[in-house]
Amino acid sequence: MKAAVLKAFGSPLAIGNVPDPVIGTGEVVVDVAAAPVLSYAAEVFSGERRYLLPTPVVPGCGAIGRVREAGPDATKLKPGDWVFCDPTVRSRDDALTPDIVLQGWSARGEGGQRLQEYHRDGAFAERVRVPTENAVPIGAIDPTEAASWCAIGVLLIAYGGLLAMDLKAGETLLVSGATGNFGSAAVATALAMGARSVVAPGRNEAVLADLKRRFGERLVPVRLTGDGDRDTEAMRRAAPGRIDAVLDFLPPSVPASVARAAIMAVRPYGRAVLMGGVGMLGGEDLALPYPWIMRNNITVRGQWMYEPAAVGGIVGLVRSGLLDLDHYAVDKFALEDANDAVTHAAANVGPFKLTVLTPGG
């Protein structure tokens, strides 16, 4: 089969023929129709991000495709079924604390690297092999819709954070980092789940205005000033009611003070979920006040990616019409043009933008 191969960090992807994936028990081989190209793929392939990804490797984080062959223990999947290839692969021998690898992308820890040795190659190819539970049915679609369905890879991460905080219909959510790729996905997903309103703080007035245009009165933009106390108060005042929960998607470049200002806008008994990159490049710690957390019964937790059941939930939101994939502008590239796609993805970063490889033509 044809694939794009990263032979060494710092080298361009090599397009050529590689052996077909060989199926085993508990696995599915999928014909890839569309695979997302993440905006920071160039940083991964150059080695700048220092991801634990052994080369040579077929990269690619997730895909939409059709089942080509299912293993002997599959009871429902059959050839031709449209599926989302979930890249979040979990070890099966420890249900409480599984090792996790993003297939074709990265691994965490010694156990994750062992898992990666087998679940290694990703979706920048005509076919990909995934664990059976990672081939999640999405129902019949027109092949021309496959690229748009790649958006659920981004939406799923936001959905994972919203499930972690147990967001309820009618609640008011504040999304810290709402003007970014994942933050904007959180806005769309929270409103689809029935949030009363979403408070969207940020400095990019053009993006805030675009969010308002897309989502109407339930989207409440707040222009940040950089003064933590003033910004916290501005977010509280802007909300139509008390802020029930905060979801943080701020990138590593943003100081912790910005995250702290947003979290401290939450009401007593409120919740905050951290999913961003604050502190990963150094700088000050988050430093939330102990007395404030304790006396106000605040829940603060971290969330990385999402639980397996989230995939079916996000598919349901799309199928119901509550979550509209048409928000995403999709630019498609043939597999042969994978290097151009990586360059394009880096240059077209922002909310509701999607770069996709289409190995299936």
Rank of each mutant, 00 (worst) to 15 (best):
D210L: 01
E117H: 14
G316W: 00
E133R: 15
K78D: 03
G361D: 14
A345G: 02
T132I: 15
A234K: 05
L52N: 15
E133W: 12
A190D: 00
L156P: 05
Y290P: 00
L173I: 07
S197P: 03
V18F: 07
G104H: 08
T343F: 11
L191E: 03
G321L: 07
G180I: 04
T343I: 12
S39L: 12
T232R: 02
R218H: 04
V207N: 10
V330Y: 03
R68G: 07
A192F: 01
K332Q: 13
E233G: 10
D231F: 09
D340I: 08
S197R: 10
E233I: 10
E233V: 04
R218D: 02
V207Q: 09
V44W: 01
A262D: 04
V300I: 05
A265Y: 01
P12M: 05
P59A: 01
P36M: 11
A186H: 07
P98G: 03
A3F: 00
V278N: 05
L162F: 02
Y306F: 10
V207W: 12
K353I: 00
D73H: 08
E336P: 07
V315N: 09
V342F: 09
M165G: 13
R50D: 13
S39Y: 14
R237S: 12
V136F: 00
E336N: 12
A265S: 14
I298E: 01
V199Q: 01
T232Q: 11
G302L: 06
G160M: 01
Y269G: 13
A135L: 10
Y51E: 15
Q303M: 13
V67A: 04
P12N: 09
R319P: 03
E126P: 09
V220C: 06
A334M: 11
G321A: 06
T25D: 14
G62T: 02
V273E: 03
L354R: 07
A147M: 00
E117F: 11
H119C: 14
L174H: 00
Q116Y: 13
G226L: 06
I298D: 06
A34W: 00
L357Q: 04
F9K: 00
E307Q: 14
P359G: 04
D31W: 06
M305T: 15
Y51N: 13
E48W: 11
E110I: 13
L52V: 14
P131D: 08
G47C: 01
Y290W: 11
V22M: 01
P19D: 08
S39K: 15
A209S: 13
D142Q: 11
G283V: 06
I157W: 09
L38S: 12
W292V: 14
K353Y: 02
D86K: 03
F333W: 00
R213M: 02
